[in-house]
Design a protein around this nucleic acid. Structure first.
Lengths: 341, 341
DNA sequence: CGATTTACGTAAATCGTTTTACAGAATTTC
DNA sequence: GAAATTCTGTAAAACGATTTACGTAAATCG
């Protein structure tokens, strides 16, 4: 039905082996034959069957990506970045979502591993990273991204989360804020705990009270709801730090609903950096993760393993930067004085 | 190296064929043997090799998805929806981006087709859909999503774009707006032209002037820039309709930069519906595409072809709905009267 | 009860490539 | 110029699963 290597071989008047050599450039073929084979292949619209090729050659030109959520722009832009990097080298990517569930994660992982991919990128749905032995057993090179377990000894790519928290807190302290709220997705994730740690260290150093910690969950709806409840209650905090993009939205949404104005009544530092953050009013001050760089680093680490080098892992962490826009200002106590004067 | 069907067969004391039958349930196997095989497989951590299985069986449990841009949340949430639908039936998805370039589209398409996927979902990067013959030649069932060429006779899933435009325009007309601006990505796309058509029909019917049409491109930066230039110029429009999500952001960003306030100075109807749209201030009135439903319909169409039925295509179009929030209000001329009174 | 069908296991062929083993021609080496 | 080496083509053996063909035991039938 579909055109095979034999059809091409017959049309070009050579053996299948030669056709294979032309396409895989595994062995030299005389220019004249290359020409003939190419022409025949083009004429028939031949493209080597990946399944067959991979089966025989034992190596796949495909990398698997397993994420907790395909509807979270942070993860999908990571995919976009990885895709852009791998395609240059003829790799395809196959993607799956664990929907934040460890059991499903294990299931999807087995399914992905069944493709015998050249490599795997995984953002685990929990720190436990229960699927670890599943992956290691498969003998497939893998890198864990974003959510890296505490004492992980494998290949990991993540940002300097402590530093990210530090930057956010320092910025707000500098503006004169004294009471902080931190909207974390969930403290069960190491990266989130690290971000908190960065914030707490700054506040402690400044002799300020510990921040009020709110776990807002992993999607917008619950984040929005939980923060709404909080804001309705009596509270004097003026500085809000979000530790994920959905937490950012939750803060904004509930501030809106409570009739609080940003940055007059409260200052907000968001997490991640998306178009909407600088399109809206007020444009958001935020901690930006270097997503694009993450994708690049992930691939370079993975590739090193794929080609066989497995040097010790460098636990270098990418640094985030704080982009200051208009959602942060001095708190009312300070601001009022100015305004009244 | 990795465990094969033979290893399992040996351990379970049966033939490879039997193991295959246990896993593929192609032929009945006695309960006792099933048990033994399952146990052996579990013990060894066996998972059938997809490449081998697909090669022999001739049918793949994978669907390919080709998009213009993996960084556009509309497309990625479409992927999320498709993924959620196909995984229940044991399919995996392999995804690629054409980066909006027709040449790259053709290249990626060949690469995807080389997997001999069970089906293909494509959002073409242009109406010309130049890759069409490539796909048809492959004999792979496919559905074109979102951007469907004018007189397309294949399987297509898109929304009622004319209706979407109509709804947006009618809403604004009802509020008393008379001068319209439409921020379209590019008029070279049929879906965008349809949305425009819906708007123009309403304005014509109401005896209003045609809208000012601005082509803002396909990403946020150019959208924001082009609209900025426009807003700086003298203009009396009060009603802004965005025809894509990036156009929506572009309008917001440039209104902000020009110091215009929404909805006091101008009303905005956005396109698509994301969390940020109801988190920000003012929450955005927008046309919502039923992304989730689109994914479902795409898969059901595709599956029908995969299992062999190829009934005539129903050119049913999904309808969008207008969700009214706070970015639209009566225009200054009307509003002022009230405010002054 | 003998004949026929059904149930179910195994051996071997097969899918479309890549790769190995071999061979003749061309080239290099001494 | 003979021997050794390189170049480049073909035939055939893999890769790991599925499927076909076949055989034996059990079940069903008249």
């Amino acid at each position: 039905m579909v055109v095979t290597i034999k059809d091409v071989a017959k049309l070009a008047g050579v053996s299948p082996g030669t056709v294979s050599n032309v396409f895989s450039s595994n062995r030299a073929v005389k220019a004249e034959l290359v020409e003939r084979v190419r022409k025949a292949a083009a004429e028939l619209g031949y493209e080597p069957d990946r399944a067959a090729s991979q089966l025989r050659a034992g190596k796949a030109r495909v990398v698997a990506v397993l994420l907790p959520d395909l509807d979270n722009p942070f993860f999908t832009s990571l995919v976009a970045s990885i895709e852009a990097n791998v395609r240059d080298e003829g790799f395809d990517i196959i993607v799956a979502s664990s929907h934040g569930d460890a059991v499903e994660e294990a299931r999807r992982l087995s399914a992905l591993l069944a493709w015998r991919p050249a490599g795997l990128v995984i953002v685990p749905c929990s720190d436990a990273f229960v699927s670890r032995k599943l992956v290691s057993g498969g003998g497939v090179p893998f890198v864990v991204a974003d959510r890296v377990p505490s004492h992980f000894d494998g290949e990991a790519v993540t940002v300097d989360n402590v530093g990210a928290g530090t930057q956010a807190a320092e910025h707000l302290v500098r503006l004169g804020h004294r009471r902080f709220v931190v909207a974390a997705s969930t403290l069960r994730l190491q990266n989130i705990r690290d971000r908190c740690e960065g914030i707490e260290a700054v506040l402690a150093r400044e002799g300020l009270a510990s921040p009020t910690l709110i776990e807002v969950g992993l999607d917008f709806d619950t984040a929005s709801e939980r923060l709404g409840v909080f804001m309705e209650g009596e509270q004097q905090a003026t500085a809000f730090i979000a530790l994920t993009n959905f937490a950012t939205l939750g803060i904004l949404a509930s501030a809106n609903r409570s009739g609080l104005s940003v940055p007059r009544d409260l200052s907000v530092v968001g997490f991640d950096d998306y178009s909407w953050m600088h399109a809206v009013s007020p444009p958001l001050t935020a901690i930006r993760q270097p997503v694009d760089m993450m994708g690049r680093v992930i691939w370079s680490r993975l590739r090193r393993h794929i080609v066989g080098r497995s040097e010790p892992v460098a636990d270098e962490r990418l640094s985030c930067d704080l982009v200051v826009r208009a959602s942060t200002a001095s708190p009312p106590s300070v601001g009022d004085a100015l305004r009244i004067a």
